[in-house]
Design a protein around this nucleic acid. Structure first.
Length: 846
DNA sequence: AACTCTGGCCCGACGG
DNA sequence: CCGTCGGGCCAG
């Protein structure tokens, strides 16, 4: 650890003199980020002192080197580093050295059949020495024993954490979990509980948004920023300010604006003020700042001759980062599928600022006509500030859940928050597992070593997939009252734990393990040693299921503690759900197909045997998908018998998840709806709930479900049938009579790539997008296209360009037909039938 | 550079 | 006309 703390001298000189101070004066400060600067060959920790409102940097250049694939002395490295051409060659030599040392090491390690951890202390030491030379600097802070978002105090050059007390109730619950697990899990559980119990911190932050004076119909070019930055807004609870360029814009009414503003005559002055303001904050939040806002400010500042020293922005290949703090680009964060699905339960689907804001905070972007550059200052400021406000509120909603998730995911993954916000689940897990390897002095496997474990032995159901996945059985069509749904708690992580699944243990070298076959695969499991991913994932699973989920609801704990444990539980869920899939992902650092395949195979085995057990007990299994069972009217005793059997026989927890008043299955898998005792409806997979279905059809669909939700017993269905018939008759009549607004008939489908990249086939939404492009619109991947089906080629039109008389009504009735049949199939009536032949004749003129 | 996985449904485009 | 495939969205 460094003995001397230094302060960087970039940034506005005066500002920095005010903001930075020597470490010996530093009181309690929040660690915001850690990174390794390869150019300066220094690690930089970024702290923020909330009380004093100042940030400071702590640099470490002792013993931690940037290019550690080498045995070269530091001085030699420095000498060659000065010359770039030489460095290239030396890098190669370094790689040779690395290979040599690894070969030597492997000779020793091969005496250990599993090649991780080492079998005795001398091997362990050698591994550690070798590992020290190939340190992975993402984990830098954690190598020093530091943790993100935690308060530290610096005394005599040492960084010391500010400790917290663990509530007694929490300690007790942890002891119980440790008692239930084999001793190998104890150190893991302890370590994790200590980390996860660390209180959450708040981050002083501001949201930023910019407006550029663009040419009509064209987006500003970030790489060649020829247009002026005309407005920049900052928003948080204390500060709502817009910096604007006069540029001849109308100043009418601006003096009475409901926000603070500053007007500038020169763009360079505006930008200097912006850069200076940015320095006040350790965390800056944007929406798409990586690709646009910060990149544009930086390039524009360069062009206007603003000195590097005045500018806190540092552009990287994909990210825009800050020299003094961290930049969170929410666009990157919300685009992350794991976040979308597991943290926000798919509550948003559109990844634009407007889309996410509308879904999560119920607020929209400001609308205006024409070009942003032509707006009067009052409007310009309002528009610009509104975007910053939405951005900020996305981080402050629900008690700042976004910041808390970022922080917790960062701590679990041993990855700085700025990286967490930009990278996907496989990178979080990579970082987490690298750390775990180093902590126990284990070798991190190379790709070729992992490949030796072999590929998949099962054949996937779907063409083009790598292995066989979860089991889905055909539902029994019809309506069933009193249906209980049992499901396995974290099935895949549980199986990884119980069956010791890890890349080094699966298909191990012990001859006596070969008989521990994993059903439906050619693989076997190891009973000689605990696998590292089994230990890590298993510990996290137990802590989530047996500890944090309960603590989050425990009334004896303070609100603050409950909130912390809720965030922990949610973050763990993200990791647990991603772990299995990552092992089947080619680019994952621990990619190991046998692990993914074995997990899924054991899942199929578990559910198959449970179904058999149910049958044996005389319980009807109506449906099952991967880890869930739908049981027809089981008794309490039957449920607890099955649950107890799963616990002892399979080693996996099987719980009663929910009970439906009734469930209606069609013959289609992953397509059903259920009604809870309180009348709420649970819809799965039906077309009527899909985001692409036109608003009008969705509305009718939900109306129909409303009718069906009132059904209390089989006799009620007759009434429901009559009401449904009336509803659908009116629908057909409204469609035929063109009484439905065109907007409500729009299909909304996302573009997964730009129009040009669809080769060979042109789906309807792409055809519509191309029409918009012809009108001069810019369509990007990720945008949602609204289109209606029309009667003449190309049979689609963007919704905003279509007239009611162009709509192909028959297509819509056809679509409604198929949509309602999914619903009615189950109830044993059909669209045609319910409409009655005469009604159909009437409307279809047949 | 990359966006955890497989299973399943639906529609429309495309080629024979 | 029909089977196959690409594309999108959803379940788990």
């Amino acid at each position: 650890m460094a003995s001397q703390t230094q302060v960087q001298t970039y940034g506005l000189a005066a500002k920095l003199a005010e903001l930075t101070r020597p470490a010996k004066e530093v009181g309690e400060s929040l660690l915001a980020s850690a990174s390794y600067d390869g150019d300066k060959k220094k690690a930089v920790l970024k702290f923020y002192d909330q009380k004093a409102g100042r940030f400071w940097l702590w640099e470490d250049d002792t013993g931690h080197r940037p290019y550690c694939y080498t045995k070269l002395p530091m001085d030699d490295l420095k000498a060659v580093s000065a010359r770039k051409d030489v460095l290239e060659i030396v890098e190669e030599e370094k790689m040779d050295l690395l290979t040599d040392s690894k070969t030597r090491l492997r000779k020793i390690v091969t005496t250990d059949p599993l090649a991780i951890g080492g079998g005795n202390d001398s091997i362990r030491d050698q591994i550690r020495a070798w590992e020290a030379d190939i340190k992975y600097y993402e984990n830098y802070a954690y190598d020093l024993g530091l943790r993100m978002g935690t308060y530290y105090r610096v005394t005599q050059g040492k960084v010391v954490p500010v400790r917290h007390a663990v509530p007694e109730r929490v300690a007790r619950s942890l002891d119980e979990i440790m008692a239930k697990n084999p001793p190998a899990f104890t150190p893991f559980l302890k370590e994790w509980a200590e980390l996860l119990g660390e209180p959450l911190s708040e981050f002083k932050r501001v949201a930023l948004d910019i407006e550029v004076d663009n040419e009509p119909g064209r987006l500003p070019d970030v790489e060649n920023p020829s247009r002026e930055v005309i407005a920049v807004s900052f928003f948080n609870e204390k500060e709502k300010v817009v910096y604007m360029l006069r540029g001849g814009r109308s100043e009418e009414g601006v003096s009475g604006a409901p926000y603070d503003y500053q007007l500038f005559d020169r763009e360079a002055d505006l930008l200097r003020a912006v850069l200076s303001k940015m320095m006040d904050y350790p965390v800056i939040v944007t929406f798409n700042g990586d690709d646009f806002d910060l990149r544009y400010i930086q390039h524009r500042s360069e062009r206007l001759g603003i000195a590097e020293e005045e500018d806190p922005i540092q552009l990287e290949r994909v990210a825009a980062s800050l020299k003094h703090g961290i930049h969170i680009d929410l666009y990157q964060f919300f685009r992350n599928r794991s976040i979308q699905v597991y943290a926000f339960s798919n509550r948003y689907t559109d990844h634009t600022l407007g889309g996410v804001s509308e879904s999560l905070i119920g607020k929209s972007k400001v609308d205006f006509e024409g070009e942003v550059g032509d707006l009067p200052l009052l409007k310009l400021g309002e528009y610009c500030l509104n975007d910053a406000q939405l951005t900020y509120e996305l981080t402050s909603m629900s008690d700042s859940i976004v910041m808390k998730l970022l922080l917790m995911i960062s701590r679990i993954g041993k990855m700085p928050m700025n990286d967490v916000s930009r990278l996907g689940i496989s990178n979080w897990i990579r970082s987490m597992l690298f750390y775990e390897h180093r902590r126990i002095g284990a070798l991190i496997p190379r790709q070729d070593e992992l490949a030796e474990k072999g590929g998949a032995s099962s054949k996937s159901i779907i063409k083009g997939k790598k292995y066989k996945g979860g089991l889905v059985i055909d539902p029994r069509p019809g309506v069933y009252f009193d249906v209980a749904v049992l499901d396995f708690a974290s099935l895949y992580p549980s199986l990884m734990k119980v069956h010791n699944l890890s890349y080094e243990t699966v298909n191990c070298t012990h001859p006596e393990c070969r008989s521990n076959r994993i059903p439906d695969t050619d693989s076997w499991e190891c009973t000689k040693r605990n696998g590292i991913t089994s230990l890590v994932i298993g510990s996290l699973r137990d802590l989530r299921v047996g500890h944090y989920k309960q603590l989050a609801k425990d009334p004896t704990l303070s609100k603050q503690d409950r909130e912390l444990y809720g965030v922990v539980s949610q973050s763990l869920k993200v990791y647990l759900n991603g772990a299995y899939g990552s092992f089947g992902f080619e680019s994952f650092a621990f990619y190991c197909l046998p692990v993914a395949e074995a997990t899924a195979a054991l899942g199929r085995d578990a559910i198959t045997r449970t179904i058999a057990k149910c049958k044996e007990l005389g319980v009807d299994v109506l449906y099952s998908d991967t880890d869930s069972l739908f049981l027809h009217s089981p008794s309490k005793e039957q449920v607890s018998t099955i649950s107890a059997w799963a616990d002892s026989g399979l080693g996996v927890e099987l719980d009663l998840d929910k009970v439906y008043r009734y469930v209606a299955f069609s013959s289609r898998k992953k397509n059903y709806f259920g009604v809870f005792p309180d009348g709420t409806v649970d819809i799965k997979g039906l077309t009527g709930k899909k985001s692409q279905t036109p608003e009008y059809l969705k509305r009718i669909f939900y109306d129909a479900l409303g009718i069906l939700s009132s059904v209390k017993d089989p006799d009620d269905f007759e009434r429901a049938r009559t009401s449904t018939r009336e509803l659908l008759t009116k629908m057909v009549s409204d469609l035929k009579g063109k009484r439905v607004p065109v907007q409500d008939l729009a299909f909304t489908v996302m573009m997964s790539k730009p129009t040009g990249k669809y080769n060979g086939t042109t789906p309807q939404h792409v055809r519509a997008a191309m029409q918009l492009e012809q009108k001069g619109e810019d369509i990007k991947a990720g945008e949602t296209i609204a289109f209606v089906k029309t009667k003449s080629p190309p049979y689609v039109k963007p919704a905003k360009l279509a007239r009611a008389d162009e709509v192909d009504t028959d297509k819509y009735i056809e679509y409604a037909h198929s949509m309602f049949d999914q619903l009615l199939d189950a109830l044993d009536f059909s669209f045609d039938e319910i409409m009655g032949a005469t009604t159909l004749d009437l409307f279809w003129g047949g």
